[in-house]
């Protein structure tokens, strides 16, 4: 964090964030069909990454279990709609509620450990959640997953009619949630609470000695992180109409880590650009490599793996972390 911010820096920060949000709003009118869909998806997944960043970037806790929060939002919203015909709006709230409750529970237990043990404990809780999604196959249909029909994805309240199978509606909802998430992380990063989290990351003993309740602050961080991740999950099932066990698997705990690392941990804009870049990078390199080596059975895991190793070796601060270090000291 960059110590004292002048009024000019303050204006720059708000300008930059509003600029990005405005740009993404305008983009829907110029983007061709395919990229429109991609950006909508990236915005939802970036929300997931932003949730991950609150815990990993700002609080310095490496979780390998965030897929369970995403999946809690996904199933928490999707299953009531699918099985009980619940209206999408309360279902969305149920999804967020499930994720937040799970985050509080997991946080209260896992935060008793530190360092490597925290990572393994979160990994194991997420594995339990994944196995549970398979075990309850009668309800979730496991790996095969469930698809929501068009009728189940329409929100109609009075004059408001939102059909989430419609491309433009989907984009605007993804955009709104993304903007909200970005605003929340920016507020957290610049608040007193956010600075306490950074203090805990830098030196927990010292933060405790200064009189901060580090456990309560970390628990709040896990809860907020889980809630944002669950929001992304709940939004995903409503917007794209699919839920499956894959979203609860380890891979979906690793991906937000990768996106945040690429964009820059503990930066507000990093998660979005990390997700965006990784999506196109994986897509393009996969297409190119498959064109060169058609028999190599390449899928994206290899690219994800190489990206993780290269990032750790040569680019540990990520995109916006490096920009902040070299040029723009005021970036939050």
């Amino acid at each position: 964090m960059s110590g004292h911010l002048t009024a000019r820096d303050d204006a720059r920060v708000w300008g930059l964030h509003f600029g990005l949000i405005a740009l993404l709003f305008a983009a829907q009118y110029v983007l061709p069909d395919y990229h429109n869909g991609v950006i909508a998806r990236v915005m939802v997944l970036a929300l997931f990454a932003m949730g991950y960043n609150v815990l990993f970037g700002y609080t310095g806790l490496l979780s390998l279990g965030h897929s369970m929060f995403f999946a809690a939002g996904l199933y928490g919203a999707g299953l009531p709609i699918y099985h009980f015909g619940v209206h999408p709006l309360p279902a969305f709230a149920i999804g967020i509620g499930c994720g937040t409750a799970l985050a509080l529970l997991v946080g209260a237990l896992a935060l008793r450990t530190t360092g490597v043990a925290f990572m393994i404990v979160t990994l194991m809780f997420a594995q339990v959640a994944y196995l549970m999604s398979l075990w309850l196959g009668e309800w979730t249909r496991g790996d095969e997953g469930l698809t929501l029909s068009r009728a189940e994805r329409i929100i109609e309240i009075g004059p408001m009619f939102l059909d989430m199978t419609n491309r433009d509606t989907r984009y605007i909802i993804a955009w709104a949630l993304f903007a909200l998430g970005l605003g929340i992380t920016l507020l957290i990063a610049r608040s007193r609470f956010g600075r306490v989290l950074v203090a805990i990351r830098e030196n927990e003993e010292r933060a405790r000695m200064l009189g901060f309740d580090t456990f309560a602050n970390k628990l709040a961080s896990v809860a907020i992180s889980g809630a944002i991740s669950a929001t992304a999950g709940a939004a995903y099932v409503l917007l794209f109409g699919y839920m499956g066990s894959t979203f609860a698997s380890i891979q979906y705990s690793i991906l937000p880590l990768l996106w945040v690392l690429l964009g820059g941990a503990a930066t507000t804009l990093g998660p979005f650009f990390g997700t965006l870049l990784m999506f196109y990078l994986a897509e393009m390199s996969n297409d190119a490599l498959n064109a060169w080596f058609p028999d190599a059975r390449l899928n994206q895991i290899g690219i994800v793996g190489v990206a993780l190793i290269l990032l750790v070796l040569f680019f540990p601060k990520g995109l916006f972390g490096s920009i902040r270090e070299r040029w723009l000291k005021w970036l939050p």
């Binding site: 490496l62 690793i254 880590l257 793996g305 990032l311």
Partner: peptide, 11 residues
């Protein structure tokens, strides 16, 4: 941890 996750996927 991050690097060995990467190694896992590469292998």
């Amino acid at each position: 941890i991050v690097a060995t996750i990467g190694l896992l996927y590469v292998l």
